[in-house]
Design a protein around this nucleic acid. Structure first.
Lengths: 341, 341
DNA sequence: CGCCAGGATGACAACGCTGTCAGCATCTCG
DNA sequence: CGAGATGCTGACAGCGTTGTCATCCTGGCG
């Protein structure tokens, strides 16, 4: 049944194809009456511009890519959902670009990938979003970029961030307010800036609560469940153990819970545990995790919106301001309680 | 620095653009020597065919879509990973198409979506893959389709399935072999065929173990954690309760575990629980779930491979055979144990 | 030695759209 | 009322490929 082309629309509306093109692209200088006629013809014919032709003739591809590391963290699905929504709304399509974080020539590899498919833009998720070398390479190759990144530093106009540090300080104060004085902390993957900020927030919270940090209560993991189990063991098998453990990640918190169960330590009666992210897992473990809800979907959506806006306007409006901040919130569930007598 | 075009390659190799095109597309009738020269030129110039031009001139878009329902089940990420890999390998790109399962005109909506972006093919995930009306509409609109579906019935040439039924029977026999005679079962979402098959498998396993089904030990959920909690309550608060509960889904199994914890029922000492899928959650709950590992990533990969093959050959080789079967396997962890004395 | 089948190659016209530029109508202002 | 500015519109040339078809070789065969 052959799909309608711009030519069909043009002849039906009694105008040239160029005028149809103008209407379709919302360009100025079309008389309202003409516009009306064209739009009617478009509706009648159910006309949809051919994307390939558009990309070939114009410069854009209407494709934007989402870059993430493999294996995907569980929150990726949320970012992804937000990003897809924003894309749809803007008439774009979202492509997936998983990649291996450990590849040394990642920048080259990615910018080549982007070039192959002629991506209009790329959304960077952590920890990729923190790799300045990558961003630089991408800039060089002319792909627009949006970063879902903690980066409070530079590049504010195209980043979206959340208040990791402040909220973690708040969490710490909350735990302190329950009477805990011996608070352990599990730092996450060293390459993720967000993690550093959470740790910083913890230190700040401690200070605000008038407590001091005990080095032996700080343990370094890699964001995984397994590393949570491991750190849990190290922290809980000391002669003097913390009465609360804050993990930089829900997965690690779940690991601590596992260890506690194995050691017969009751939560929250004998030990309080908190996570970070509020992934689906968080409320499915027992006891349900007190954690920080990271608005991942909103971040994906915002970052994408930022990118699309940038693509439309050439440059971005918010140049030089603060990065868009999407606040996280404290979610109190069952894994925290008053310090044991 | 403007990217190399087919013309650049042609003049460098001293041939016409058509010959380059032939080489690029692996068409026959090019002398080995010529092919060689062209390939060298391609390497020298780092030539990459322009996808838009190809789609415009040819018929294909090199885009395939992955259709899934929103909100995404946690295993979607695995299917997705497999699908992306297969796409990359075949020179295709993967687009995401979340949609709402409840929309009544889904078929029309989707086939329109597919048309807009000129998708070459579409991968259907459950429960979409079980909607015959959708498949029919897609066939009508000429989009190639691959189904990740339990559908043992019809359409074998373009479906990938797993042995839900047999493996569930095996699981049941395993539990029975631990001495359990009062085995409860939580059926999943009624619209998902796979779920039916799991239930059927359960019944079969029961029979094979010489046990009979007790109606009051069967409960209907909707695949969610919450429904697992609810069903767990119903099953465990009876005067006579099952000593083992098989849930059709890991999430529901986690729900049962939650309920058991709340009721102070020890697992596996007093109650055995099993799940299905082996999502990441499965080994992070406590105790770690005995479950069925569904090879989701492999299924995504296979389904995509099937689709790409079909796109290349026109029709598919395996026409009329059995759907590709990717076996699941039983993973025994800590949530199952011998029946209490 | 001439003829023909079929393999190897190239010229050229699409594919459906956007960018450029020219042309005409209309408006503004002195 | 005329000159220049501005708004609206269309003709046409690409964009980088693939498909079609013509052409040129080559080797096999009578």
């Amino acid at each position: 049944m052959g799909r309608a082309t711009i030519e069909d629309v043009a002849s039906r509306a009694g105008v040239s194809i160029k005028t149809v093109s103008r209407v379709v692209n919302h360009e100025p200088n079309v008389r309202p009456g003409t516009r009306e006629r064209v739009e009617q013809a478009i509706r009648d014919l159910r006309y949809r511009p051919n994307t390939s032709a558009r990309s070939l003739a114009g410069k854009r591809s209407f494709l934007i890519g989402l870059l993430y590391v493999k294996p995907a963290a569980s929150y990726i699905i949320n970012i992804l959902t937000g990003a897809v929504d924003a894309c749809r709304a803007g008439g774009f399509e979202l492509l997936l670009h998983p990649c291996r974080y450990t590849d040394t020539d990642l920048p080259r590899q990615i910018s080549e990938l982007a070039g192959n498919t002629r991506l209009d833009g790329l959304i960077l998720t952590p920890p990729l979003s923190d790799m300045e070398a990558l961003v630089a390479e991408l800039d060089r190759s002319g792909v627009a970029v949006a970063r879902i990144a903690p980066g409070a530093h530079g590049d504010p106009a195209r980043s979206v961030r959340t208040n990791d540090e402040e909220i973690c300080a708040e969490l710490t104060r909350y735990v302190a307010s329950l009477g805990h004085r011996d608070i352990g902390f599990i730092v996450g993957h060293p390459d993720q800036l967000a993690v550093q900020q959470r740790y910083t927030g913890f230190l700040r919270g401690l200070e605000q609560a008038g407590l001091s940090m005990r080095k032996s209560f700080v343990c370094h993991g890699d964001n995984s469940f397994e590393s949570g189990v491991e750190c849990g063991r190290r922290l809980l098998q000391r002669k003097r153990r913390p009465t609360a453990i804050l993990a930089s990640t829900d997965d690690m918190a779940a690991g601590v819970i596992r260890t506690a169960h194995e050691l017969g330590i009751r939560i929250p009666a004998e030990l309080s545990v908190t996570g970070f992210d509020d992934v689906p897992l968080a409320h499915k473990v027992w006891p349900a995790l007190t954690t920080i809800r990271q608005p991942m979907q909103a971040m994906g959506e915002q970052a994408t919106a930022l990118l699309l806006e940038r693509l439309r306007n050439g440059r971005n409006d918010r140049e030089g301001g603060e990065p868009a901040l999407i606040p996280s919130e404290l979610v109190i569930r069952d894994s925290t309680g008053p310090v044991p007598e």
